[in-house]
Amino acid sequence: MLGVSPSSVASIAQALNAAQVPCVLWGHCLLNIHGVPSIVSSIDFVVPDDRLQVSIETLSKVRTLPACLRGELCPSGPQPYSPAPAFHIHMDGSKVTVDLYLQSETLWFLPSFDGTLSSPRKAKVPFDLVIASDQTILPPRRPGRGSGVFPSTEYPVLVPRAHVLLEAFMRLYVRDAETRTGSFAMAMITYMEEYVDEDGLLDVDRLPEPLGSFYKELGKGKKPVRQWTEELKGALRREDDRGGFEKDQ
């Protein structure tokens, strides 16, 4: 991860966990771990909505994370082509920021992160998540790919598995298809296909329906993206109406 070390990521997760805030890695750091060669300009975490204020207070007390006084006007802050974080702060002496995202805006389809996840060493990690240093699931560093799995010596950081990350991007795309965020999500879907799926590191069968079938159809490229998008929206609406699609129901 260019400009960002696993130790930096782990230290932020540890600070949040110490304040009893469960957190899950997000953004380009997460893409790097899954083998996508993405430039990292921020360390992003997803936190429960009701723990956002505690998270902000916790990070604001970290000596190496000076507060941002410019908010949305900050040149190092949220970019217009990606989902906006609920909060960002700066790493001292670096252009890298630390961003917090709400679960309701990113991984809303997963069960709510409960307090047990603030102790990753002791918690029974849900199947959809994995420790960033798990070499049995995550790829090693490879030429032309991302940073890969974290060293086992680092504090445990929770990350979504590859199929969950793809699901998140597909849901974000459907939700925000006519916006810049939607364009960002489609680009991320393409990256997942090109770098993770092509390398045999994505278990597509873990995607819930109708997402799994629509992802495979998109890869065939036989249907215009606009038509594919409208059909996927309709399929998700039908599943939601039946109450059988959300994982936490």
Rank of each mutant, 00 (worst) to 15 (best):
L2A: 02
S5G: 03
V9P: 04
Q14L: 00
Q14R: 10
L16H: 15
L25A: 13
C29E: 08
L31V: 09
L31D: 14
V40D: 13
S42L: 04
V46Y: 08
D49S: 08
D50N: 15
Q53N: 06
L65E: 08
P66M: 01
C68W: 04
E72Q: 04
P80T: 05
P85D: 03
P85S: 11
H90Q: 05
G93V: 14
S94N: 07
D99A: 15
L100D: 07
L102I: 07
Q103I: 08
Q103E: 09
L110H: 09
S112Y: 09
F113A: 06
P120D: 02
P120C: 02
R121E: 10
A123L: 13
P126L: 15
L129Q: 07
V130M: 05
Q135E: 14
I137W: 08
L138W: 10
G146L: 11
V149F: 01
V149W: 02
S152F: 04
S152Q: 11
E154N: 06
P156F: 03
V157Y: 09
V164K: 05
L165I: 12
E167Q: 15
E167C: 12
E167R: 14
E167L: 13
M170E: 02
V174T: 06
M188F: 01
I189K: 13
M192R: 09
E193N: 12
E198S: 14
L201D: 12
L211S: 10
G212Y: 01
F214M: 08
Y215E: 02
K220F: 12
K222A: 14
V225P: 04
R226V: 14
E231F: 10
G234Y: 13
G243K: 06
